[in-house]
Design a binder for these strands. Structure first.
Lengths: 395, 395
DNA sequence: TAATTGTTAGACAGATTGCCAATTCCGAGG
DNA sequence: CCTCGGAATTGGCAATCTGTCTAACAATTA
């Protein structure tokens, strides 16, 4: 139900933003390519490119040769037309020191700067910390403040868009209402906030195993908690209060049910994995060490792995029954440590438990998926902002 | 990322379809209203309306009086410009006689004809039955065949769009590959197929408790099976193979797990409700009779209702943990029979079991929700088809 | 020579502004 | 109570403007 109406100015804007959208997606195109993609005539394409070039958004980056006729000009978006930044705030395991990882990329997605900081948020105000992190990124990349169009924040929690408040977050200071708009004001950019697992799913779609899938679920097995991200055709499901995917709290049915209430966190949380490992005499002082040890010596820890996979299958079976995703991705430190050993065990467990057969895979992202996903999300926001700006500016 | 480009013809088409979209949504508008809604100038609105009138899609239905100036003409879509039909195929409880319910509505959504047939699909070919049903509707409403633009089929099963085949369907003959395209060819219209619970959710959104909600989950408690429909911002989630919401097959975790595998169907299927009712000495020979009896005498059957609500809460808790819907709707014969008694019990059970508080409601649709939803879905398809036709015709 | 690129000029389509006539309501005055 | 004039609104017409398209053309390279 497209209810968009307007005059020739709208047309002009639409054509320009269509061309820009194609250039952002395919990164190198000739006039002829754009003609084919947009179905516009030669003079119009020339006009559109002239305007985009004048605005500094695209530039000629080379010439096509080897064919009869003049060398066709190759256009591409100007990488320096705008930048996106991402900040991932997290707890670092047992040391309990909250920490910050941040990166900055240009309009083509190339990472221009990256920093890591250990910050104690009991002593530092989050807003100052964030502003400083962005400033550090800017100096490292040598970029002016006003060229950063969007800052994406990744937190282990959910963001209430209406109240502009981060909820269910453990890092001190981040739950304060008003933090996000104040930071945005201090930075002079738009600031987006999203759950870390959701952003890991964004990365998985752009550069991981979920690249060409129409929808998938990503189960994040962290050192402490677990989470789920749901991607339907490229958009993430966040739920009414941002609580979608909080399957740690999913209660499990106990037939006799004189047992105390059991939820999935009791089965797959860090403490549970620790306990399970100790029961099976798998060495290690943290959940991650235990799973790593089990994966490196699968024969020794076969029973542990089977049990762990069974527990993962319990959660996945519910997710699969509700959503029927075409792909399920296992991600997070525990899943990565478990590698193919754990993957195979989960597949087997699901074949026993679940009604629908689903493809299961382990993430292929070895770098910091949350940070990369935040960067991807920020970049998408910047690109959509540019396209919208063209549309509005000329309208 | 709107990548739509074009010339003045596209503009013309866009403006016409924007106006039509507004008229379809608001059903009575003056030129001035359309001017305000579309931001177009007076001559353009006049031109658009002239073209839509010439095409027979809209008409002047009255005049505005009581204000200074000439009586403004009131435009509305022509109800007879196109029709949508819906057919719901089902099993009728214990008698095991598959049956067909069908209805036909005009472009404004008014129901023009409605029929019910008892058809034994062991003896009748589904295609002939469907064609006959549509023919009966046409004669009852006195409408030409070519004016029916879309026929929507509701079945207890899922539709594989790629293979054009209905899956997991019990009614004989409907699983045959090729049935849907053949029926479409015989009818000379487009035929859409969807799961009955999904279509009930469509009705719930358009005319039930879910009218103004941004997303909801609908739990269908039928005489035999159960199902779930997931609505995210007005679009239904169907899953990779149309299996989303098949929570009957959701396995339940058993801690000791020497028990045999238990799934939600074992807890909430017809047989399970029967058994539960007999355990608690609630009278009745069918699940529906038992729940009805329990709802009419809540004190007597308090324990039965609590148990049943607990079981419903088990399924809902998983759904809520995964999706965090802003509303959960209980629908289907069992839920309707349980009425407020069951609703209150489910609310109490969920407060005990689920982490996130969700609004729970019982469906407010007393008529055949599946049929109405199919009609709504068919009508939407017809409307979108008209809008698209305008866009393409003039392009 | 043939194919391809990109520009320019003129035609064309569609929307907008501004102007105008017609219509109706409302209130004032007889 | 009736009549008349002002105000507000509707909808059409002409002129103008914006933007794209077709066609012709110059330039360039295999």
């Amino acid at each position: 139900m497209t209810r968009l109406a307007g005059s020739s100015k709208l047309l002009r804007a639409m054509n320009a933003s269509a061309a820009l959208a194609h250039l952002l997606e395919q990164d190198m195109l000739t006039r002829a390519d754009l003609r084919r993609l947009t179905q516009l005539s030669t003079p119009t394409i020339s006009d559109v490119l002239r305007r985009l070039t004048d605005a500094g958004l695209v530039a000629v980056v080379g010439h096509h040769s080897g064919r009869p006729g003049p060398n066709a000009e190759i256009y591409a978006v100007n990488p320096d037309a705008a930048y996106a930044a991402a900040v991932s705030v997290r707890d670092i395991g047992a040391s309990r020191t909250p920490s910050v990882v941040a990166a900055l990329c240009d309009l083509t997605g190339d990472i221009r700067a990256r920093i890591e900081r250990r910050i104690d948020f009991l002593r530092t105000d989050p807003r100052t910390a964030l502003v400083d992190a962005i400033a550090d990124l800017r100096t490292e990349a040598g970029i002016a403040a006003e060229n950063i169009h969007h800052v994406q924040l990744a937190v282990a929690g959910s963001y209430d868009t209406r109240a502009e408040t981060i909820r269910h977050v453990d890092v001190p200071g981040f739950a304060r209402p008003g933090l996000v708009p104040e930071t945005a004001a201090a930075l002079g950019t738009r600031v987006g906030v999203d759950n870390d697992v959701n952003l890991a799913a964004v990365a998985e779609r752009r550069r991981g195993v979920a690249a060409d899938v129409d929808g998938f679920a990503l189960l994040w097995l962290g050192q402490e908690g677990l989470g789920l991200a749901i991607d339907i055709g490229g958009t993430l499901i966040r739920g009414a209060r941002g609580g979608a995917g909080e399957i740690g709290y999913m209660p499990l049915y106990a037939p006799g049910s004189i047992h105390r209430k059991v939820d999935l966190q009791d089965l797959l949380g860090g403490a549970a994995i620790m306990a399970l490992g100790q029961d099976h005499r798998v060495p290690g002082r943290t959940p991650l060490e235990i799973v790593t040890a089990a994966a490196t010596d699968p024969n020794q820890a076969a029973e542990f792995i089977t049990h762990l996979a069974d527990r993962i299958a319990v959660g996945l079976a519910a997710v699969i029954a509700v959503l029927d995703p075409s792909l399920v991705v296992l991600a997070g430190p525990i899943a990565q440590a478990g590698e193919d050993t754990l993957l195979a065990a989960v597949r087997a467990a699901l074949r026993r438990a679940a009604p629908l057969e689903s493809t299961i895979a382990v993430t292929t992202i070895t770098d910091d998926a949350v940070l990369l996903g935040a960067l991807d999300a920020g970049l998408t926001a910047v690109r959509e902002g540019l396209i919208a700006a063209i549309r509005d500016n000329q309208a």
